[in-house]
Design a protein around this nucleic acid. Sequence first.
DNA 1: ACCTCATGCTACATCGGTTGAGCAGGAGGG
DNA 2: CCCTCCTGCTCAACCGATGTAGCATGAGGT
Lengths: 353, 353
Amino acid sequence: MTAPRPNPAPTRARRTTIYDLAVLVGASPTAVSAVLNGTWKKRRISASLAERITRTAEEQGYALNLQASGLRREKSRLIGMIVPKYDNRYFGSIVERFEAMARSRDLFPIITCTMRDPALEIQAAREMISHQVDCLIATGATDPDRITAICEGAGVRSLNLDLPGSLAPSVISDNFGGALALTRRILAASASQRHRGEPIPFIGGRASDHNTSERIRGFRAAHDEAGIAVDEAMILATGYAPERAITALADLAARRGALPRAIFVNSTIALEGVLHWTRSTGHFGAMAPHVGCFDWDPLAAILTENIVMVQQDVPAMLEALFGLIDAGTPPPGVSEIPTHFAAPPFPPVAEGP
Amino acid sequence: MTAPRPNPAPTRARRTTIYDLAVLVGASPTAVSAVLNGTWKKRRISASLAERITRTAEEQGYALNLQASGLRREKSRLIGMIVPKYDNRYFGSIVERFEAMARSRDLFPIITCTMRDPALEIQAAREMISHQVDCLIATGATDPDRITAICEGAGVRSLNLDLPGSLAPSVISDNFGGALALTRRILAASASQRHRGEPIPFIGGRASDHNTSERIRGFRAAHDEAGIAVDEAMILATGYAPERAITALADLAARRGALPRAIFVNSTIALEGVLHWTRSTGHFGAMAPHVGCFDWDPLAAILTENIVMVQQDVPAMLEALFGLIDAGTPPPGVSEIPTHFAAPPFPPVAEGP
DNA sequence: ACCTCATGCTACATCGGTTGAGCAGGAGGG
DNA sequence: CCCTCCTGCTCAACCGATGTAGCATGAGGT
C-alpha cells in the first residue's frame, strides 16, 4: 500500500498560472505577464522570448485570471446592466445590442434582470459594485436615483437607460413625440368611425412612471390638437399585467355600451390583454378597433389588423449611451431619442399573376 | 496659494476597504473580514466588536471586493450561462428563471448572448473562464462538446441546456415526444380537410441540430402511425430566419398548387414568416391552415386561428439543471423533460347575457 | 505560586497578476 | 580606458480579502 498522501483529493489539475508558464519557458513571471497582456514592447522583451511565451501559453491552454488582474489594476473591464424583464423584444434587443457594443470596446458585459422588483434592483446594483464593475447602466429602473447614489458612494459611474433619473445622465425615447405622432395617426385612421369629439382610451403602464406620463401627455396633446377633450376615465394606466388591461377594457366597454373604435396601448404586454379581449369578444375583421401600440413586436405586427406600432430606436439609444460612456463623466441630463413607426417586418409577398 | 498636491486628481474617493474599517474601529483587518463574511463566530470575536464593525461598515457604505475575495478563496461564486438569442420567450424565460435560481443559491449569474455565432460562443466561454466562473451552462450551443473541452482544460464544470452534448450532462426537452404529440394533434385536426395519405410540411430549424432532427423524427413517427408517407420535400428545415420560412412556404405552395391544410412550425421565429405568408396570401378565417408550433408565444397564441403551441417546461428543465449542479460532478447523460401543450394565456372572457 | 485552558484578538503568508525600479552586459563615444 | 546608453530582462511591492498559526490576558484548579 502506498503511504497516504497529504492531499488525497483527486488533484483536480490546478489552473495554469503565469508562474507555471515562467518555469516552462525559463523566464520570469513578469515577462510572461507582459507578453500576454501586450505591454511587452514597451518593456523591451525580445520578440523571440515573446514568441516562446505565447506558444507555450497556447499549448498549456492558459487562461488569464481576470480576478487577479482586475484586483491589481483596480479596474475590472466589467460593465454592468440591470434590465427589468426578458419578456419583450424591446429589452431583448437592448441587451443584445448592449452586449455587442460592450464587447467591441473590450468590456465584458454583465446583465441581470430584476423582474421589475425595486428591492432586487438595489441588490443587483450592490452585487455588481462588489464585482467591481467600472460602470453600471440602470435600464428601466424604478428608482434610478437610488442606484446612482449607491454607485456614487462606491466611486462607480452610472447611467440610466429607458427611464430617466436626475442624478446621472439618461438616454430615453422621445415618449411625448412618439405618443403624439401615434395618437394623431390612430385618431385620423378612426375619424370616420368615431363620433365627433369622441376620445379614445389609453391602456397600460403606470402613470407614476416617467415614460407613461410623457406618453399620456403626448396622447392628450394630439387630442387637444383635434379639439377633443380627454375624460380622466379614458386613461387606464393599470400597470404591466395583461390581465389588468383585459378588465380595464371590459369595464370601459360596459360603461360605454361599446368598444371604442381606436385604442392607444402602452406596451406589448398590455397589448396581449387588449387583443385577447377584442378577439374573444368578436372585435375582429370589420369590427377590429384601430390599435396604436407604443412598443413593437413582429408577431403582433403580422397578426393584427389596423395596428400601428411605434418602435423605439434601440440602435440610436445605445449609440447615445456609449457616446456618454466613452465621454468620461458627463453631467446629468436627459437625451431623448426619436421613435419611429415600425416598418412592416417583411416585404409584401409577391403574388403570381 | 496652496502648495501643489502630489496627486492633483479629483481624488475620486477610493473605495472603502477592510483596512479602512479596521483603522476606524481600532481592530485588525482580519477581525473586520471575519465579521463581515460571517465566519466570526467560529473565530471567537466578541459580539460587541462584531456589532461595532458591522455598524461602521454600514455607515461607510462598505462593499466587499469580490475580486479580491474570489482570488483568495480560489472560487468566485459566479455561474455563467451562454444563450443564443433574446428574441423569443423561451430563452427569455430560461434566463429569468436561471437568474432567480442562481441567486437563491447565493451564486451570481453571468449571462451572455452569442447570437447563434459559434465563434462568439467559444470566445464567451473563454471569457467566463477567465472571470473564474465556478460553473458554465451552455444553452443552445452549436458545439457544446467544444465548450465542455475548454472548460475541462480549465477545471471548470460545465453543463448543457436545450441542446445536448456528449461530454457533459445535458438537460433538454423531449423533442421527439413533443413533436409526436403535436403532429398527431394537427393531423387529426386537419384530417377532414386533407386528401387521404397527404402529409403536412415541417418548417424551420436546422436538420443538423439535435433538437430539430428529433422533432423531425417525432413528426415522421406520427405520420407513420397514420399510415402517411412523408416525402423528403416536405421537410423544410431552412434555418432560423423568418424570411427563409416565407420562401420555403411559397415554393411549396407553388409546387403543389395550394397551401397544405396543416403546417408543423419549428420555432416562433419561423412562425413569423409562416404567418406573414399565410396572412398576406389570404389564408385566414376559413382558409387558415392548422398550425402546430413547437415553441410558445402569447401573442401568437392569442392572434392565430387553429394554432396549437407546444411549450417547453422551463421550470422543470431548470429544476433538473440545478439538480445536476447541486449534485457535484454528475456523469454525462441526457435528461429529457416532457413538453406540454400551451394553456390559453388568459381565461376566456365572460360575456354578459 | 504555578499550570492549564478558554477567550479574544492579531500577524503573516497567500491567491495571480501588474508595475515601477533596477541590474547585467554589450555597444558606442570621447 | 572610462563613462554613458541601450537592450533585455528580473525583483519586489502591491491590489484586498482570507485562513492558519499564534500571542496576550484572565479565570479556574491544585
